[in-house]
Structure formats: C-alpha cells, structure tokens
Amino acid sequence: MAKALKKHDEVGEPYLSAAKPRPAARHTFPFPASAVWAALLDADAWTEWLPITKVTWTSPQPFRIGTTRTVEVGSRGIEEVFFAWQEGRRMAFRFDKSNLPLRAGVEDYVIVDAPGGCELQWTARASAPFPLGWLVNRQLASGIKSGLPKLEALIASDPARFGL
C-alpha cells in the first residue's frame, strides 16, 4: 500500500439501513449456504472472484463482531471492522481506514436458503463528496454483480475446498 491510510467515520447498522437499493446485488447458488460461507471465509478466494490483490484476516478465529481484516486492491488498502456477524449467514463490515477518498463505507453479505441452494444478498454504501460517492457506489455494485457468477464458478471448480 503506497499511501497512508486515513480513518473513516465509524458507521454501522443505521448507516447501512440508508443504502439504496437494498440489496444492491443478489445471486442464487446451486450450493448449500455452508459452501458459499466457506468461500467468504477463504482469504485467497476473494482474489479469485473480485479484482482484489490480497485479503488478510487480522483477527484470530473464531470470527465475530469486532473481527478485522485488511484488503488490498493494487495500491489501495482498506482496513475493515466487522459490526455484524451471524456465523454461516451474515457478515457486515465498515471501512475503518483506507487510502480511498471516502468519509465512510460499509458492505453487508447475507446468505439465505433458496430452492436448490442459497442466495447471497449484498448491500453496500459509501459516502464521499459528490460525484465521487455516487461513482464509488456504482463501482462497488458493478464489481460484485460481475463477481458473483465467478464465485459460483470457483466453488463449482473446487468443491472440496469449500466443504462440498
């Protein structure tokens, strides 16, 4: 990470609740929720389905509210703090520090049962001066929407890795 990280606003559920649309992306997987959850816990998997360079969990397992991790996207770095954690079903985090030009940012991943498998529902919200906030929100949503089919293909390509 080339640039120093700056502290962001400490936001959580109320900030996330204001996200529009909610959820911003959905994808139905032909796998049980446990396989999709296993993929979300796999640091290396994130680099295989999103344009992420590296993910490092910086808290020991078991993960829970307060868990931290660092994400690198090229020269961009983000330190995240999880404010919601329901094992096997939901993880939500805020951007604690980053070198992104944002005031605040959150992402929420929810897995629900669906016929023949499960559905991942994703919601995010980022705040920055206009029009930057609008652009960041669009980029986040676009990346996830194009990445979720890749996540499905990744799980299908290596079922044992994800507990299938």
Rank of each mutant, 00 (worst) to 15 (best):
G66E: 03
Q86H: 11
G133A: 15
R69M: 09
V112F: 13
L102Q: 07
A124Q: 05
E87P: 03
T67Q: 05
V73Y: 07
L140P: 06
K145D: 05
A114Y: 00
F83K: 06
I111M: 00
R125S: 11
G88V: 00
I78V: 12
G77C: 06
V110N: 03
R69K: 07
I144M: 05
V112K: 10
R69H: 09
R94D: 04
M91Q: 04
G133K: 11
W85R: 00
E72Q: 06
L140Y: 09
W85F: 00
K97T: 07
F130R: 14
F82L: 06
K145H: 10
Q121P: 01
F93H: 04
T70E: 06
G117E: 05
F95R: 11
T123D: 07
T67H: 01
G133E: 11
E119L: 02
L102E: 13
G88W: 00
G88K: 03
G117K: 04
S146F: 06
A126S: 14
Q139E: 14
G116I: 04
Q139L: 13
K97G: 03
V110M: 03
V136Q: 09
G77T: 07
G117A: 02
L140G: 10
W134G: 15
M91V: 04
K145V: 04
R138C: 12
E80L: 02
Q86L: 05
L100Q: 14
S146G: 06
R76E: 15
V112D: 11
D108S: 07
L120Q: 01
L102T: 10
D96Q: 15
S75R: 09
C118Y: 02
V136L: 13
G66P: 03
F82K: 02
E80A: 03
G117Y: 01
T67L: 00
P129E: 14
I144Q: 04
L120F: 01
R89Q: 09
G105P: 12
S146K: 15
V136D: 12
E87A: 02
R94M: 10
I111Y: 00
E80C: 02
A114F: 02
W134K: 15
G116N: 05
G105E: 08
D108F: 01
F130S: 12
S142N: 12
L135E: 13
W134V: 10
A84G: 05
L100P: 11
R138I: 09
S98L: 07
S142M: 12
V112A: 14
R103H: 12
Y109A: 00
A126F: 13
Y109P: 00
R76Q: 11
R125I: 14
A126Y: 13
R76D: 08
S127L: 13
A92Y: 06
G133I: 15
L135P: 12
D108V: 01
R125D: 10
S75N: 13
L102D: 09
G117M: 03
F130H: 15
L132V: 13
E79S: 04
T67N: 03
R138V: 15
